[in-house]
Structure formats: structure tokens, C-alpha cells
Amino acid sequence: MKAGRHRSFDKDIALEQAMEVFWRNGYPGTSLSDLTTAMGINKPSLYSAFGNKENLYKSALEKYVEKHGVIHGKYLFSADKLLTDRVQDYLISIAEMVTDPKLPSGCFVCISTSEIGGTCIPKDAVQAILKINAATKSFLIEAFSNEAMKSSVNSGRSPSVMACFVISLQFGLAVMARNGASFSELKEVIMFSTAQL
């Protein structure tokens, strides 16, 4: 019996390449040919390693969150800074990422979220996007709830509303970056928008 053939590509590198294609083009704008060309593999290899386009997309979203999403959260927990400064640092970190010329512009999760209103994304992938957004909201609610317990925020401000406010800013920054806004422009928006936190 012959031994199975080993893959001649690095699965993790291929996944990052696929992530950037989906990030740049969106799910409906990305063809299998776009993916195989970027990943340097053929369709049978793609199916063997990732299953299908939808599974690859979900894996790409997970990779994005792992590499470009959760890294910003650390700025909310700088013990030596006021809450307003920490939120600004958090959003500035996001602004730097969404305007990084080495990456596709904007935010992959934001782009994906904007596409779920129609029927162009399969149901399982929609659920994956909603789960990511719910996790972000829960993380922010927890962060602001902790601040409320320490009396760092106005007791009349709901942690849930504050979380939604920050998510709205995140998505707005990503859309502006996608539309060509510079980092300096986004920073001005951040400083203006968060001044009253």
C-alpha cells in the first residue's frame, strides 16, 4: 500500500494568503481561482486541506481575529492610564491596522458584517461572523463593567451602550479607511469622538 502524498505547501501560510484575498474582495467577490492563485495551490489541494470555500472563509476569519483582532484589547487594560486614554489607544491601534499599507484596507470582520444583510454568504459563515461580533461586544461590556465597579465611569452610563459606541467607532474607522482616509484623519476622529468618555 502506497503512503499518502504529503502536502507541498504550508497550510498556515496558505490560509493567511486566502485571508487577505477574502479581506480585499469580500466573500462574493472571491472566486476559487482567486484563492488558488494567491495560495499557490490547485483546487483539489484546497478541498483536501480546507474542505470548501465556506470552510476556508470561516478559517480565514478565525485567523484574522487571532492575528489582527484580539491584539488591540490589551490597550484597554493599562493600569496607569485613564479610561478615555485607554479607549483612545485601543482605537488608535485599530486605526493603524486598518490603514497599514502592507495589508488590505479596512477590517475583514467589518467587511464581512456588511455582507451578511443579503444572501451572498452561506448561513454557517454568517453565524461565524455574528459570533465574532458578539464576542467583541461581550469583551467590551466586561471591560466597561469592570470600570464601573471601580467607579472609573459615570454610573449612569451603561457598559452595553458604551460597548456599542466603541464598536460603532471601530466599524466607522474601518469603512473610512476602506474609502481612503489616512491614519491622521482617523486619529482626529478618535480624539474628537472619545473626548466625553
Rank of each mutant, 00 (worst) to 15 (best):
E54F: 06
E54R: 12
E54H: 07
E54M: 13
N55A: 05
N55K: 10
N55T: 04
N55W: 00
N55F: 04
L56E: 00
L56N: 01
Y57D: 00
K58D: 02
S59N: 11
S59W: 10
S59L: 14
S59R: 06
S59T: 05
A60I: 01
A60N: 03
A60Q: 05
L61G: 07
L61M: 13
L61I: 11
E62A: 12
E62I: 07
E62G: 09
E62S: 14
K63F: 06
K63L: 11
Y64I: 00
Y64Q: 01
V65P: 06
V65T: 13
E66I: 03
E66S: 14
E66T: 11
K67F: 15
K67V: 15
K67P: 13
K67D: 15
H68A: 05
H68R: 13
G69T: 10
V70A: 13
V70E: 08
V70I: 14
V70G: 07
V70K: 12
H72P: 01
H72I: 01
H72D: 01
H72A: 02
H72R: 01
G73S: 09
G73Y: 10
K74E: 09
Y75R: 02
Y75W: 07
Y75G: 01
Y75L: 04
L76A: 04
L76C: 04
L76I: 00
L76E: 03
F77H: 06
F77Q: 05
S78I: 13
S78R: 14
S78W: 05
A79H: 12
D80Y: 10
D80E: 15
K81S: 14
K81G: 11
K81N: 12
L82W: 02
L82M: 08
L82C: 05
L83T: 13
L83Y: 10
T84Y: 06
T84S: 05
T84F: 04
T84W: 05
D85L: 07
D85V: 06
R86L: 02
R86P: 01
R86V: 01
